[in-house]
Amino acid sequence: MKLALFDLDHTLLPIDSDFEWGQFLVRVGAVDAAGYQRRNEAFFVQYQAGVLDPVEYLEFALGTLASFPRDQFEALYAQYMAEVIAPAIRPQALALVRRHLDAGDLVAIITATNHVITAPIARLFGVEHHIAAMPEFDADGRLTGRLAGTPTSGPGKVVHMHAWLDRLGLPFAGFDTSHFYSDSHNDIPLLSVVSHPVATNPSAALASHAHAQGWPLLHLFND
């Protein structure tokens, strides 16, 4: 058996889907522009520096999602997918995922971004299995704005990967090979446990670590 895991933002997409969702909301006037953009950009800088508090950020993002009535959110999200996500999907990223799917590998996208924003994006890549930060819902199925469980970031990706495989009845040790493609130094914990880590469109910090470890580098978006 073979396993292929993919980060999403700046790995399969040349953008950060969560940050761009925030920018989109500002652009269309769905949120208070000055206050929201200031917080969104500050969180993004913290993420790039590796000092982001994932729970604080996720509950900021999920709180924003929870503030929209369902019909309004669905209309906004459809517009976002059409205007931001669809144009950002590149054939070379689709081909990389397709190569693993066609080989019969078990494929999953594992992202620190929340499930609401990223599940439809995973489907665009043809990936059934999708591991992301899970929002909390109330008894009526409405978002509460809070995170359910633990974040899927840093070491949390390793924990969530094992939990997902356990639910499938497929222990990680049973795979002959395991790939993980990521751009971020925040993903070094999971990159370090797979048999084939691939620094994909890597940040400077990850590129330096990958060189030191002898990991391959892949640049998908050099066109």
Rank of each mutant, 00 (worst) to 15 (best):
K2D: 15
L3A: 04
L5D: 07
F6V: 10
D7C: 08
L8V: 04
L12T: 06
L13I: 03
G22Y: 06
L25W: 09
G35P: 10
F43G: 04
V45K: 10
Q46C: 08
L65R: 13
A66W: 08
S67R: 09
L76M: 05
Y77F: 15
Y77G: 05
E83L: 09
E83F: 01
A86Q: 14
P87H: 04
A88I: 15
I89V: 06
Q92D: 11
A93K: 07
L94R: 14
L96F: 00
L96N: 04
H100R: 01
V107L: 12
V107W: 07
I110C: 05
A112H: 13
A112V: 08
A112W: 12
H115W: 02
I117N: 11
I117Q: 08
P120C: 07
A122W: 10
F125Q: 10
G126W: 02
E128P: 07
H129T: 01
M134V: 15
G141F: 03
L143C: 02
G145E: 02
L147G: 04
T150N: 12
G154D: 00
G154Y: 02
P155V: 07
P155G: 13
H162A: 10
D166S: 13
L170M: 05
P171Y: 05
D176Q: 14
T177S: 14
H179G: 01
Y181T: 01
Y181L: 05
Y181F: 03
L190R: 01
P197F: 07
A199V: 03
A207P: 11
H209M: 07
H211P: 06
A212E: 14
Q213P: 02
G214F: 11
L218S: 09
